[in-house]
Design a protein around this nucleic acid. Structure first.
Lengths: 168, 168
DNA sequence: CATATTAGTTAGCATAGCTAACTATAATTT
DNA sequence: AAATTATAGTTAGCTATGCTAACTAATATG
């Protein structure tokens, strides 16, 4: 398949990336970093996604399931907001999860319009299995980093996490 | 997600993430980091992707176009390999780009089976515009970080980039 | 009680991923 | 040289995800 026949290094998506400034109205460092961060995220997920399919469910479903497993039961609207998609999209995702018995749906007592969606035991199991597959691959590669690099990366992920949390 | 005013911490996709060991065959730090890294990448891209649609082209097309703009002309097979998708998928992506006149296709002299695909001026223009939109949003948020945090994050992205390069 | 708002669904469109089966060209074998 | 095999892309057809617009049902509000 992918015969590594090309030149040694030619990562696509790696624009200028040089460390040289270039006044652009705002901090040029931030701009260059944004580019590289974006690129890295794209490629990271492309790689990891390959393991996802082994669970038999697509990424959107696994991600929604993850919210339910780690965040507890939610209504459809809450799920849609958490996943940053529109209600019709989440409606279909939940329908798929329900068809596979990975989530269970009950009526909201007190408001018949709402639905309570919760992960079933099967759903929780599958999520953990999927996560293991996904993560194992990534972890295996991270494992080749030095302890310093690991620590650095960990600190950065934390920075990123806080940044994303306050995004809205 | 919903207003984060309920429980203290309830970011979805943020599993155990405990900092304590749990022998799992491999470095548990790497495993925990893999989880958080994966989560951060997912959410980062969800946010950024919203700007993509402003260009009128989907993410797969923009990504392929990016390879052409920064990596020069490619054959369809090369593009597919670079983007880690199968030839039929790339065939359709390229067809879409060609329909919008963002790439131009010429016959390979010497091998009539191959096609040379290159970004047009219009394609290059659109990519840069799209990238600006995408990145500006991200950069604006990165801008709120301290110089140290920026530097740390930058170093980590570099670590990640190298890691991804040697993935296959 | 009439109306407006809110929660979800349905229908219909587009993008993007895949496999299987096909066409056309090039390379290899006999 | 002819037959075979291998390679490059395409076509057809499936699934999954995303959207908007238009709908139904239930709740809230006047």
């Amino acid at each position: 398949m992918s015969t590594g026949k090309n030149q040694p290094a030619e990562t696509p998506h790696e624009p200028p990336a040089a460390g040289r400034p270039k006044p652009e109205g705002r901090n040029p460092e931030a701009l260059a970093l944004a580019n590289r961060l974006h690129s890295a995220a794209i490629h990271l997920l492309r790689r990891v996604r390959k393991q996802d399919v082994a669970t038999g469910e697509g990424p959107a479903r696994l991600s929604a399931l993850s919210v339910l497993v780690f965040g507890g039961p939610k209504t459809l609207g809450e799920l849609a907001a958490a996943e940053q998609v529109k209600p019709p999209t989440m409606s279909r995702i939940v329908a798929g999860l329900a068809r596979s018995r990975l989530v269970a749906i009950t009526a909201d007592p007190g408001d018949a319009r709402r639905m309570r969606i919760r992960a079933t035991a099967k759903g929780t199991r599958l999520l953990h299995k999927g996560r293991q597959l996904r993560i194992a691959d990534l972890a295996a590669h991270l494992d080749s980093l030095s302890p310093q690099e690991l620590a650095e990366l960990g600190a950065s992920v934390e920075i990123l996490r806080r940044l994303l949390e306050s995004w809205r």
